[in-house]
């Protein structure tokens, strides 16, 4: 057991304090300490993006951020993307356009897409494809993911 660190992180709008082992990755803290299991782990090498969350409003791979590094930060996970009971336009668009199959990459994909639309509210197909290059999906062939992001950007689906 290594050293522990006291952290205070605002997660989905709520202040969460915790004493964590220094080596605790943000993703494990979210999943196992806070029970926010929507954020997934799919690889060991920062490739797959299934663990993507927002930290201070920008997408990060939470498998490559120490929980300690998030001290003082605001973190948003898929569970907190939309107000309770509602859906974010991207969530709705993924549903509408069949942008998911097994659903495992989906939370990270949606969080990455949200950052993409923040940076570029009207992306072309090619910009969407490159904007999601850090997220792997094995089911969909990305076709409907691109359609979903495009639809969300165009407000084609009700928010």
């Amino acid at each position: 057991m290594g050293a522990t660190v006291r952290i205070c992180v605002t997660v989905n709008g709520e202040r969460r304090e915790s004493e964590v082992e220094a080596r605790t990755l943000l993703v494990y803290w979210l999943r196992e300490e806070l029970g926010l299991t929507g954020t997934h782990v799919g690889c060991d090498t920062t490739n797959c993006g299934a663990c993507t969350v927002h930290m201070n409003g920008e997408s990060v791979k939470s498998c490559t951020v120490l929980a300690a590094q998030a001290d003082g930060a605001e973190v948003t996970t898929i569970e907190g993307l939309a107000p309770e009971g509602g859906l974010h336009p991207l969530q709705d668009a993924f549903w509408e356009k069949h942008g998911l199959q097994c659903g495992f990459c989906t939370p990270g994909m949606i969080m990455a897409a949200a950052d993409l639309l923040q940076r570029n509210p009207n992306p072309t197909d090619d910009e969407i494809r490159h904007g999601l290059e850090g997220n792997l999906c094995r089911c969909t062939g990305y076709h409907n993911i691109v359609k979903a992001v495009k639809a969300a950007a165009a407000n084609e689906v009700p928010a």
């Binding site: 299991t37 929507g38 569970e79 993924f94 549903w95 998911l100 495992f104």
Partner: peptide
């Protein structure tokens, strides 16, 4: 028909084996 599976999966409420504690 839109998928019945999706509402839980797009909101992070899917239930995968690794989620079990």
């Amino acid at each position: 028909l839109k998928r019945k599976e999706d509402p839980r999966m797009i909101t992070g409420r899917g239930y995968y084996t690794e989620d079990i504690q």
